[in-house]
Design a protein around this nucleic acid. Structure first.
Lengths: 156, 156
DNA sequence: TATTGTTATACTCTATAACTATA
DNA sequence: TATAGTTATAGAGTATAACAATA
């Protein structure tokens, strides 16, 4: 039977796993940043396009809530995106205080290109992985997500 | 035998896995940011402390190289850390142009606290995972890292 | 009275370019 | 001539607070 001193690797392995997780986050973030920069975007602005692409036109207030930033921040991001012709601000049909933000056709094209890049990356990373292993790996990621959210009550 | 139309889930599963990976990166980043903020730090400043903690005193130039930022950026980060009493700038023994940056005892204490938080998080996330599953999961992460680095030649 | 978006202000991280002091 | 670190300047993301128009 093992004594306590025989298992210093227990916590050690978990620490290595967490380090790898941080490493993935770092390099994935760098790659995403590079991908959006190639199309003249930043991560934050791409996030706006992505939200509009998935959920359709919405008010700046809704956008702020969905992105988890202040309304003031959304104003700045939209100013830049509008100057690039990627989004459009229109009057809200019933509430004259509000603004309805929507993708332009150019904005939609750019966002579809981003989605294409994402799908290519998914194929490169996981395309040749046996389904069983991929499922197990993804389940592990989901467990991590659950526990992180549980450990951080302030996370949305 | 399956026709091509019977496997639309192939790419679909990979896409879900990548989405989970992005989700992990996002929530992990948020948690880390919260963790360092609790100790009056930012992610970038914590990165400086971490580098000094692991590799010992070094010049600002070396720090810039290790962090992957410009020397000018390091100046700003160190100014803030020094004002908080976490790092110390001393003359280089042989090169009078250079500065040797080191953690103060307060800086070392803070960094050790960060390490403690990291170890706790590792235990929460992976402490109860069977070794076989954890190894497989970590191997999956390492595969992802390799492929991301291979796909991004500009990544350091 | 509450909400929507904006102006005003500020902080942090980041970069490039020009400059000083040393190698 | 090249290198280490700084000053100068700029841009991007983020935040709070005060304000106008509208609900």
């Amino acid at each position: 039977m093992k004594s306590l001193h025989d298992m210093p690797e227990g916590p050690g392995i978990a620490r290595v796993s967490l380090d790898r997780l941080f490493e993935v986050a770092e390099v994935l973030g760098a790659m995403m940043q590079r991908g959006v920069a190639e199309r003249g975007l930043t991560t934050a602005r791409a996030g706006v396009l992505w939200a509009l692409f998935h959920d359709g036109p919405m008010t700046q207030r809704a956008l702020a809530g969905q992105l988890g930033v202040t309304p003031r921040n959304v104003t700045g991001l939209l100013d830049a995106l509008q100057a690039d012709g990627l989004v459009d601000r229109a009057a809200h049909p019933t509430d004259r205080r509000a603004t309805l933000v929507a993708l332009t056709s150019k904005g939609r094209n750019v966002t579809e290109a981003l989605r294409g890049g994402r799908d290519e990356l998914a194929a490169v990373l996981f395309g040749d992985m046996p389904p069983g292993r991929l499922d197990a790996f993804t389940a592990g990621l989901e467990t991590v997500i659950e526990r992180l959210r549980a450990a951080d009550p302030s996370g949305r």
